[in-house]
Amino acid sequence: MTALATGVEAVLRSCRAQGRAALVGYLPVGYPTVEGSVEAMRTVVDAGCDIVEVGVPYSDPLMDGPVIQDAAATALAGGARVDDVFTAVAAVRDAGATPVVMTYWNLVLHRGVERFAADLAAAGGAGLITPDLIPDEAAEWIAASDRHGLDRIFLVAPSSTPERLARVTAACRGFVYAASTMGVTGARTSVDSDARGLVERVRAVTDLPVCIGLGVSTREQAAEIAAYADGVIAGSALVRALGGDQDLPTRLQALHALTSSLAEGVRAGRR
């Protein structure tokens, strides 16, 4: 078990010390354009995101629902490249929040795990969230993240057995990403009661902070989860706010308003 609070863990512990959960916002690079996505990331930081998940658009996003699938397709059609991710990471760091990159594994593998890690560290990234990489397959990434002082955030799910929870959380650094429900990304009207039970099961095997993702779209949901988790992750809802036919400044305003409301939620949960 790690004793030192590194990158993203320090942020989560600081939020905990303030008596609140952290707000983690996901946005994909390149949506609606590369510049627009960087602007959107600055917007969510300004509106209260503590940590930004910088998403890398991928041709085959099999853990994502329609909203993020469409955003990734738009980003790729618009010419977004993996290189752009490091620009976005640096921008989030400059804006004062902590950037972590969320990426499907082949994009890291193809760039070279060592090169990706070095580029990420150089850009100021705290680490990687890897939705389709389990610790069993991660030896190269574990070594590279150690060399570069990067966090490695693996996922756990309601289906995870106690043995798997122990194994996965032992490989994590930074925080544990707990999927609230079985399924893919996308806003849901209610976040499963499985989420609370999963957080309890994770806490039984690790002292690492636990963040809940999948399905969060409202202030009320954020507040509900903030009552028992260290961080609340919102993704599809933010991407949807950034979508639509209006001009970009108007959409950024909508994104700011939603993020502010979620930021209120993570502060309301413990009161």
Binding site: M63, W105, P131, D132, L133, I134, D136, E137, F154, L155, V156, A157, P158, S159, S160, T161, R164, V168, A179, M182
Partner: peptide, 21 residues
């Protein structure tokens, strides 16, 4: 080595949610 390898190929690159299945 992880289960199900054919030399360097194969493996199990999946969401954790599917591992029990």
């Amino acid at each position: 080595p992880p289960a199900g390898r054919f030399g360097d190929f194969g493996g199990r690159y999946v969401p954790e949610a599917l591992v029990p299945a």
